Computed example of a mutant assay.
Amino acid sequence: MSISHSHSVPSTVSPERIQEYGVGLFDAIPTKSALKKALKKGHIRVNDRIASTATMIQGGETIVYAPPLLVIPKRSFKLKLQVIYEDDHLAIIDKPAGILVSGNQFRTIANALSQNLEVSPEQDAVTPQPAHRLDFATTGILLIGKTAESLRRLSKLFEEKKIRKCYYAVTIGEMNSSGIIDKPIDGKKAVSTFKCVASQVSPRFKLLNLVKLEPETGRRHQLRIHLSELGNPILGDRDYTPENLILKGKGMYLHAFSLELVHPFEDRSLVITAPFPERFIKLFPSLGKL
Protein backbone atom coordinates (compact mmCIF):
# COMPACT_ATOMS: atom_id res chain seq x y z
CA MET A 1 0.00 0.00 0.00
CA SER A 2 1.31 3.47 -0.85
CA ILE A 3 0.34 7.09 -1.30
CA SER A 4 1.54 8.77 -4.48
CA HIS A 5 2.56 12.30 -5.35
CA SER A 6 2.74 13.42 -8.98
CA HIS A 7 4.42 16.20 -10.90
CA SER A 8 3.81 17.24 -14.49
CA VAL A 9 6.99 18.32 -16.24
CA PRO A 10 6.55 21.49 -18.32
CA SER A 11 7.09 20.91 -22.03
CA THR A 12 9.56 23.81 -22.09
CA VAL A 13 12.22 22.30 -19.81
CA SER A 14 15.69 21.57 -21.15
CA PRO A 15 16.72 17.89 -21.22
CA GLU A 16 18.13 16.84 -17.87
CA ARG A 17 18.65 13.66 -15.89
CA ILE A 18 16.01 13.05 -13.25
CA GLN A 19 18.63 12.91 -10.49
CA GLU A 20 19.20 16.63 -11.14
CA TYR A 21 15.70 17.70 -12.16
CA GLY A 22 13.98 15.86 -9.30
CA VAL A 23 15.87 17.40 -6.35
CA GLY A 24 13.31 19.15 -4.12
CA LEU A 25 10.44 18.15 -6.39
CA PHE A 26 8.69 16.34 -3.55
CA ASP A 27 8.77 17.38 0.13
CA ALA A 28 9.85 13.95 1.35
CA ILE A 29 12.96 13.91 -0.90
CA PRO A 30 14.54 17.36 -0.52
CA THR A 31 18.16 16.44 -1.27
CA LYS A 32 20.07 14.74 -4.06
CA SER A 33 21.06 11.95 -1.70
CA ALA A 34 17.43 11.30 -0.71
CA LEU A 35 16.44 11.35 -4.39
CA LYS A 36 19.06 8.77 -5.29
CA LYS A 37 17.80 6.50 -2.51
CA ALA A 38 14.20 6.84 -3.71
CA LEU A 39 15.28 6.01 -7.27
CA LYS A 40 17.30 3.03 -6.11
CA LYS A 41 14.30 1.67 -4.19
CA GLY A 42 12.05 2.01 -7.25
CA HIS A 43 9.75 4.56 -5.63
CA ILE A 44 9.80 6.94 -8.61
CA ARG A 45 8.15 6.39 -12.00
CA VAL A 46 8.30 8.47 -15.16
CA ASN A 47 5.38 7.93 -17.50
CA ASP A 48 4.52 4.80 -15.52
CA ARG A 49 8.00 3.29 -15.86
CA ILE A 50 10.34 2.83 -12.91
CA ALA A 51 13.00 5.51 -13.16
CA SER A 52 16.73 5.26 -12.52
CA THR A 53 19.43 7.89 -12.01
CA ALA A 54 20.06 7.73 -15.78
CA THR A 55 16.46 8.50 -16.77
CA MET A 56 16.32 11.64 -18.90
CA ILE A 57 13.60 14.26 -18.55
CA GLN A 58 12.78 15.81 -21.93
CA GLY A 59 9.60 17.74 -21.08
CA GLY A 60 5.96 16.76 -20.84
CA GLU A 61 6.46 13.69 -18.64
CA THR A 62 4.51 12.77 -15.52
CA ILE A 63 6.71 11.94 -12.54
CA VAL A 64 5.13 9.94 -9.73
CA TYR A 65 6.68 9.39 -6.30
CA ALA A 66 4.98 6.49 -4.51
CA PRO A 67 6.78 5.30 -1.35
CA PRO A 68 5.24 2.46 0.65
CA LEU A 69 3.18 3.68 3.59
CA LEU A 70 4.18 1.00 6.02
CA VAL A 71 6.62 -1.80 5.40
CA ILE A 72 6.69 -4.42 8.11
CA PRO A 73 9.90 -6.46 7.96
CA LYS A 74 9.48 -10.20 7.48
CA ARG A 75 11.29 -10.70 10.78
CA SER A 76 11.65 -8.25 13.60
CA PHE A 77 14.56 -8.44 15.98
CA LYS A 78 13.19 -9.20 19.42
CA LEU A 79 14.72 -6.67 21.77
CA LYS A 80 12.98 -4.79 24.55
CA LEU A 81 13.83 -1.09 24.25
CA GLN A 82 13.25 1.67 26.76
CA VAL A 83 10.98 4.23 25.11
CA ILE A 84 11.56 7.61 26.74
CA TYR A 85 9.12 9.63 24.60
CA GLU A 86 6.62 8.85 21.84
CA ASP A 87 3.89 10.60 19.85
CA ASP A 88 2.30 10.10 16.41
CA HIS A 89 5.28 11.58 14.57
CA LEU A 90 8.43 10.60 16.44
CA ALA A 91 9.88 8.67 19.35
CA ILE A 92 13.00 8.79 21.49
CA ILE A 93 14.55 5.62 22.89
CA ASP A 94 17.44 4.81 25.22
CA LYS A 95 19.88 2.84 23.06
CA PRO A 96 21.68 -0.01 24.84
CA ALA A 97 25.39 -0.64 24.30
CA GLY A 98 26.72 -3.31 21.98
CA ILE A 99 24.21 -3.08 19.16
CA LEU A 100 24.20 -1.36 15.77
CA VAL A 101 21.61 1.33 15.09
CA SER A 102 21.05 0.19 11.50
CA GLY A 103 22.77 -1.54 8.61
CA ASN A 104 22.78 -4.83 6.74
CA GLN A 105 22.85 -6.98 9.85
CA PHE A 106 19.65 -8.39 11.36
CA ARG A 107 20.55 -7.54 14.95
CA THR A 108 19.97 -3.77 14.83
CA ILE A 109 17.93 -1.17 16.68
CA ALA A 110 16.10 -0.41 13.41
CA ASN A 111 14.82 -3.99 13.19
CA ALA A 112 13.57 -3.89 16.79
CA LEU A 113 11.62 -0.61 16.60
CA SER A 114 8.32 -1.88 15.20
CA GLN A 115 7.63 -4.14 18.18
CA ASN A 116 8.48 -1.40 20.69
CA LEU A 117 6.56 1.55 19.20
CA GLU A 118 2.93 2.28 18.40
CA VAL A 119 1.96 2.44 14.73
CA SER A 120 1.45 6.05 13.70
CA PRO A 121 -2.12 6.93 12.60
CA GLU A 122 -0.75 9.55 10.18
CA GLN A 123 -1.38 9.01 6.46
CA ASP A 124 2.33 8.87 5.63
CA ALA A 125 3.24 6.40 8.39
CA VAL A 126 6.35 4.35 7.68
CA THR A 127 8.27 1.66 9.48
CA PRO A 128 9.97 3.59 12.31
CA GLN A 129 13.52 4.57 11.39
CA PRO A 130 16.41 6.15 13.33
CA ALA A 131 16.89 9.80 12.34
CA HIS A 132 20.62 9.72 13.20
CA ARG A 133 23.23 7.29 14.43
CA LEU A 134 25.09 6.32 17.57
CA ASP A 135 28.15 4.08 17.60
CA PHE A 136 27.89 0.37 18.40
CA ALA A 137 29.24 0.83 21.93
CA THR A 138 27.55 4.17 22.71
CA THR A 139 24.47 4.30 24.93
CA GLY A 140 21.67 6.83 25.29
CA ILE A 141 19.31 9.11 23.39
CA LEU A 142 18.29 8.02 19.89
CA LEU A 143 15.71 9.96 17.87
CA ILE A 144 13.24 7.99 15.73
CA GLY A 145 10.97 9.12 12.89
CA LYS A 146 7.58 7.40 12.49
CA THR A 147 6.33 9.13 9.32
CA ALA A 148 7.92 10.10 6.01
CA GLU A 149 7.42 13.81 6.73
CA SER A 150 8.81 13.47 10.23
CA LEU A 151 11.99 11.84 8.94
CA ARG A 152 12.34 14.61 6.35
CA ARG A 153 11.89 17.39 8.92
CA LEU A 154 14.20 15.78 11.46
CA SER A 155 16.87 15.38 8.80
CA LYS A 156 16.54 19.05 7.95
CA LEU A 157 16.83 20.03 11.63
CA PHE A 158 20.07 18.05 11.89
CA GLU A 159 21.42 19.62 8.69
CA GLU A 160 20.60 23.11 10.00
CA LYS A 161 22.18 22.27 13.39
CA LYS A 162 18.93 22.97 15.22
CA ILE A 163 19.11 19.84 17.36
CA ARG A 164 21.34 20.20 20.39
CA LYS A 165 23.02 17.05 21.69
CA CYS A 166 24.88 16.54 24.95
CA TYR A 167 27.07 13.56 25.76
CA TYR A 168 29.02 12.43 28.81
CA ALA A 169 32.20 10.40 28.68
CA VAL A 170 34.74 9.03 31.11
CA THR A 171 38.24 9.92 29.89
CA ILE A 172 41.73 8.89 30.88
CA GLY A 173 44.48 11.21 32.14
CA GLU A 174 44.88 14.76 33.35
CA MET A 175 43.01 17.30 31.22
CA ASN A 176 42.00 20.96 31.11
CA SER A 177 38.80 21.97 32.89
CA SER A 178 37.13 23.04 29.64
CA GLY A 179 37.84 23.91 26.05
CA ILE A 180 36.94 23.76 22.37
CA ILE A 181 38.41 21.15 20.06
CA ASP A 182 38.46 22.44 16.48
CA LYS A 183 40.22 19.81 14.39
CA PRO A 184 39.06 18.55 10.97
CA ILE A 185 38.13 14.90 10.54
CA ASP A 186 38.68 13.38 7.10
CA GLY A 187 39.24 16.88 5.78
CA LYS A 188 35.92 18.19 7.06
CA LYS A 189 35.32 20.78 9.78
CA ALA A 190 34.73 19.20 13.18
CA VAL A 191 34.14 21.12 16.41
CA SER A 192 33.46 19.80 19.92
CA THR A 193 33.24 21.61 23.26
CA PHE A 194 34.10 19.88 26.52
CA LYS A 195 33.89 20.52 30.25
CA CYS A 196 35.51 18.37 32.90
CA VAL A 197 32.81 17.90 35.55
CA ALA A 198 34.69 15.67 38.00
CA SER A 199 37.91 13.68 38.34
CA GLN A 200 39.08 10.85 40.54
CA VAL A 201 42.28 8.94 41.13
CA SER A 202 42.52 5.50 39.50
CA PRO A 203 45.08 2.82 40.47
CA ARG A 204 45.46 1.70 36.85
CA PHE A 205 44.77 4.87 34.83
CA LYS A 206 46.09 7.40 37.40
CA LEU A 207 43.19 9.77 36.72
CA LEU A 208 39.69 9.34 35.34
CA ASN A 209 37.47 12.27 34.36
CA LEU A 210 33.74 12.74 33.89
CA VAL A 211 33.45 14.99 30.85
CA LYS A 212 30.43 16.80 29.42
CA LEU A 213 30.58 17.05 25.62
CA GLU A 214 28.62 19.04 23.06
CA PRO A 215 29.44 18.37 19.39
CA GLU A 216 28.81 21.33 17.09
CA THR A 217 29.28 19.14 14.02
CA GLY A 218 28.41 15.50 13.42
CA ARG A 219 31.39 13.68 11.97
CA ARG A 220 31.75 9.93 12.35
CA HIS A 221 33.45 9.08 15.68
CA GLN A 222 33.95 12.81 16.25
CA LEU A 223 33.99 12.86 20.05
CA ARG A 224 36.12 9.74 20.27
CA ILE A 225 38.69 11.08 17.81
CA HIS A 226 38.79 14.56 19.35
CA LEU A 227 39.33 13.29 22.88
CA SER A 228 41.98 10.87 21.73
CA GLU A 229 43.81 13.67 19.89
CA LEU A 230 43.56 15.74 23.06
CA GLY A 231 45.46 12.98 24.85
CA ASN A 232 42.42 11.89 26.88
CA PRO A 233 40.89 8.85 25.17
CA ILE A 234 37.50 7.56 26.29
CA LEU A 235 37.68 4.70 28.78
CA GLY A 236 36.93 1.44 26.97
CA ASP A 237 37.38 2.84 23.44
CA ARG A 238 39.30 0.09 21.66
CA ASP A 239 39.79 2.04 18.43
CA TYR A 240 41.35 5.28 19.69
CA THR A 241 43.15 4.28 22.90
CA PRO A 242 46.81 3.22 23.27
CA GLU A 243 47.11 -0.54 23.72
CA ASN A 244 48.35 -0.32 27.31
CA LEU A 245 45.29 1.73 28.36
CA ILE A 246 42.55 -0.36 26.75
CA LEU A 247 39.87 -1.50 29.19
CA LYS A 248 38.44 -4.83 28.10
CA GLY A 249 35.06 -6.34 28.85
CA LYS A 250 33.19 -3.36 30.30
CA GLY A 251 32.22 -1.43 27.18
CA MET A 252 32.94 2.13 26.16
CA TYR A 253 32.11 4.96 28.54
CA LEU A 254 30.31 7.30 26.12
CA HIS A 255 26.67 8.16 26.77
CA ALA A 256 24.28 10.33 24.73
CA PHE A 257 22.70 12.05 27.71
CA SER A 258 20.29 14.64 26.31
CA LEU A 259 18.71 16.00 23.18
CA GLU A 260 16.98 19.35 22.71
CA LEU A 261 14.89 20.47 19.75
CA VAL A 262 11.71 22.24 18.75
CA HIS A 263 9.10 19.61 17.91
CA PRO A 264 8.90 19.49 14.09
CA PHE A 265 5.09 19.50 14.11
CA GLU A 266 4.26 21.44 17.26
CA ASP A 267 5.41 24.80 18.59
CA ARG A 268 7.05 23.48 21.73
CA SER A 269 10.50 22.49 22.90
CA LEU A 270 11.50 18.92 23.65
CA VAL A 271 14.29 18.38 26.17
CA ILE A 272 14.81 14.67 26.76
CA THR A 273 17.42 12.90 28.87
CA ALA A 274 18.48 9.27 29.15
CA PRO A 275 19.54 7.85 32.54
CA PHE A 276 23.20 7.01 32.98
CA PRO A 277 24.24 3.36 32.70
CA GLU A 278 25.09 1.74 36.02
CA ARG A 279 28.79 1.51 35.15
CA PHE A 280 28.98 5.32 34.98
CA ILE A 281 27.32 5.67 38.38
CA LYS A 282 29.72 3.17 39.96
CA LEU A 283 32.64 5.40 38.96
CA PHE A 284 30.88 8.70 39.71
CA PRO A 285 28.03 8.12 42.23
CA SER A 286 26.81 11.73 41.97
CA LEU A 287 25.45 10.89 38.50
CA GLY A 288 22.65 8.94 40.12
CA LYS A 289 21.17 12.27 41.20
CA LEU A 290 21.03 13.80 37.70
Rank of each mutant, 00 (worst) to 15 (best):
G22M: 14
I225R: 06
M1G: 07
I44Q: 10
Q58F: 14
D88Q: 08
N176T: 09
K195A: 08
D267Y: 10
S286P: 06
P68L: 06
K188T: 11
Q105Y: 14
S286I: 12
L113I: 09
S202M: 02
L254W: 05
L69N: 13
S120L: 03
A28V: 06
A148C: 01
T147E: 12
I141Y: 02
S199G: 05
G236W: 00
S202W: 01
S150W: 05
V170I: 12
I163M: 08
L142R: 04
P203C: 06
D87F: 12
E243S: 14
P30Q: 01
K189A: 10
P128M: 00
G236D: 04
L283W: 11
L245P: 07
D48V: 07
I272Q: 10
G173R: 08
S178N: 13
I92P: 08
F106C: 04
P121S: 04
E278Y: 10
A28N: 09
L223C: 09
A137K: 11
L213D: 04
A137C: 11
R220F: 01
F136K: 15
L230P: 09
Q200G: 12
G24Q: 09
T53S: 15
A51F: 12
T31R: 04
I93V: 15
L227K: 01
K250F: 11
G24H: 09
P203Q: 13
Q123E: 15
G24I: 10
L247D: 03
S155I: 03
S258R: 11
H5D: 07
F106E: 09
H89D: 15
D124Y: 10
K195P: 05
Y253R: 07
V271Y: 11
T193S: 13
T31F: 04
D87M: 12
D88I: 02
S2P: 14
L151Y: 02
A169C: 02
F276V: 09
S155R: 06
S102D: 13
H7L: 13
A137E: 15
M1F: 07
N104T: 15
R204V: 13
G231R: 01
I234K: 02
G103I: 03
M252E: 12
A256G: 06
L151K: 03
P285I: 05
I57D: 03
A66P: 04
K146C: 02
K161L: 05
I109P: 13
S4G: 01
G218V: 01
K32C: 00
L25T: 03
L79P: 02
T273V: 12
I163G: 11
L25R: 01
G98Y: 03
A54Y: 10
K250E: 15
A169L: 04
T108Y: 12
A51Q: 10
R152L: 02
P275H: 12
H89R: 12
K156F: 08
G231W: 05
K95H: 08
A256M: 03
I141D: 03
G288S: 12
R268E: 14
K248S: 13
P275Q: 12
V64W: 05
D182I: 10
A190N: 08
T139S: 05
G249D: 08
D267T: 13
K146A: 01
T217C: 00
P184M: 04
T273A: 10
N111Y: 04
L25F: 01
F276E: 09
E229H: 05
L227V: 01
A198Q: 14
F136S: 05
S150R: 07
N244P: 05
F205M: 11
Q115V: 11
L151N: 07
I72M: 15
Y240G: 06
F194K: 06
